[in-house]
Amino acid sequence: MPHFQGLRAVQSQKTPRLIKSHLHYHVLPPALFKSKCKKIYVMRNPKDVFVSGLMLTKYLKLAAPDKSPEEFLETWLQDEEYATPWWRHVRDFWLHRDDPTILWLTYEHMVKDLPEAIRQIASHLDVKVTEKDVATLTEHCSFSNMKQNPSTNASWIGENSYVDKQFGGHIRKGRVGNWKEHLSEAAGNTIDAMVEDKLGDLDIQFDYGH
């Protein structure tokens, strides 16, 4: 990935910096959570996360194009896929959601009411925005715009021969409930059982797009 610079890109940024990460809470630097640095955590329901991961893995040719959701689910639940275990990622940040430097958002809320999410983010970052600003940002951050924006769509990945474009791209559909087009009832029930087993003691409400 010629455009991926990792920590070098972070170190070259000037303050204020924006850093995106998929890392689990327990592997992030402890100093991050002792600092006044503002953090924003975005959670998505596990079934759409699963399908998104499956499609991205096939797009990057890290999985065979004919690998079934059931086969991928087996390795996903065994913590052998990217950013797994998903449940620990969510659990650890949920337990710290009341930290004043952390803003907890859900992907589904952002899809349904992006203007309100923008206001929440602005408030968390102590940035004043007008309603005109909110309207401008809502249009700029719409899924259709982000899918076309080279700054967000990682189109440089598609310029390399190792991707399989039949599986979309870095930004694919972004819909809530797209999992219904890919998961069998049995696979969906397996994910439900995992959620109950690993997160059932927490008061987390998931929006599956029903």
Score class of each variant (00 low, 15 high):
40 I>K: 08
147 K>Q: 14
205 Q>P: 02
11 Q>T: 05
175 R>G: 06
198 K>F: 02
93 F>C: 08
120 Q>T: 08
197 D>S: 15
102 I>C: 09
84 T>I: 03
112 K>D: 01
53 G>W: 11
101 T>G: 05
119 R>G: 10
31 A>W: 02
143 F>C: 08
36 K>C: 09
92 D>G: 01
191 I>W: 00
16 P>G: 05
12 S>R: 14
206 F>V: 02
80 E>S: 12
198 K>R: 05
124 H>C: 06
198 K>V: 01
100 P>E: 14
152 T>K: 07
179 W>N: 12
49 V>W: 02
210 H>D: 12
35 S>I: 01
197 D>G: 06
167 F>T: 11
7 L>V: 10
31 A>E: 13
97 R>E: 09
121 I>T: 13
157 I>D: 10
27 V>H: 00
11 Q>E: 15
7 L>K: 09
48 D>P: 00
189 N>A: 15
3 H>T: 06
100 P>D: 14
101 T>R: 11
31 A>N: 10
33 F>W: 09
140 H>F: 13
40 I>D: 10
79 D>E: 14
177 G>M: 05
55 M>Q: 14
79 D>T: 06
106 T>Q: 11
113 D>I: 11
106 T>I: 07
43 M>K: 00
50 F>T: 05
179 W>C: 04
107 Y>W: 07
205 Q>T: 13
149 N>Y: 12
40 I>E: 04
129 V>K: 09
76 W>N: 12
125 L>F: 03
86 W>T: 02
186 A>P: 03
206 F>Q: 10
118 I>H: 10
36 K>Q: 12
53 G>N: 15
